[in-house]
Design a protein around this nucleic acid. Structure first.
Lengths: 106, 106
DNA sequence: TCATTAAGTTAGTATAAACTTACGTAAGTG
DNA sequence: CACTTACGTAAGTTTATACTAACTTAATGA
């Protein structure tokens, strides 16, 4: 779960996610968007992102097309939303207490 | 902005954020929750989180009390929400196109 | 089939980041 | 004032990870 965050936190990988966010792209085109980063390096980053479940790979001839996998973000979504808005957590724990109360004396 | 993500993505630091999420804690109490991580190491992590704007430090005698800074998460919030729900991005760009259209021939 | 294109893989290296030990400091307490 | 508590800081070491260069594979086309 934290692995998802670690995968996203690397600058080149985050840039890749943003690139692919609008429309799917081939590995070569993705690599073409970076100067100072070799193609094999980009390929390795793509591997990390795919393994983390953030990218989906599709093959088209000799090319590999990558697109975002929105579902891959789900596991950390809830976790992070607690940080944006801590009230959600408080509400949640309050709701849990209510549940317990009700179960004790119904 | 990516720095915020990098700060969060380290496992010990993420655990610290979760600890402090419910209620503020002293540096010592935070460190007490980790075995296998020395107090100075925790102290350094606290420094990173503070620098990233995710923690607020308050002093109470010789102790330092840390609490979450929800505002610190704001910069990456919008960015990440585009990943959870790519439709938001599409809507946004569509809206921008509409804006340009209107500005061209009013 | 040989060549070409597009991409992944491997092994080794370089660098950044996390850790440890030792020390320093500020705010109480007897 | 010495002593303790609660920390942070600094220097050096270890470890993880991002990188490069060289190589391999897979699909296609002449």
């Amino acid at each position: 779960m934290i692995g998802t965050l670690q995968a996203m936190a690397e600058p080149t990988r985050f840039a890749i996610l943003q690139l692919v966010q609008r429309s799917e792209m081939s590995a070569g085109d993705i690599a073409g968007n970076f100067k100072g980063v070799t193609r094999p390096a980009v390929s390795q980053h793509l591997g990390v992102l795919k393994k983390a479940g953030l990218l989906i790979e599709r093959r088209d001839g000799t090319r590999r097309i990558y697109r975002l996998s929105p579902e891959g973000f789900e596991p950390i979504k809830a976790l992070l939303e607690n940080f944006w808005d801590p009230r959600l957590e408080k509400l949640k724990t309050a709701a849990e207490k209510e549940e317990k109360k009700k179960r004790r004396k119904p």
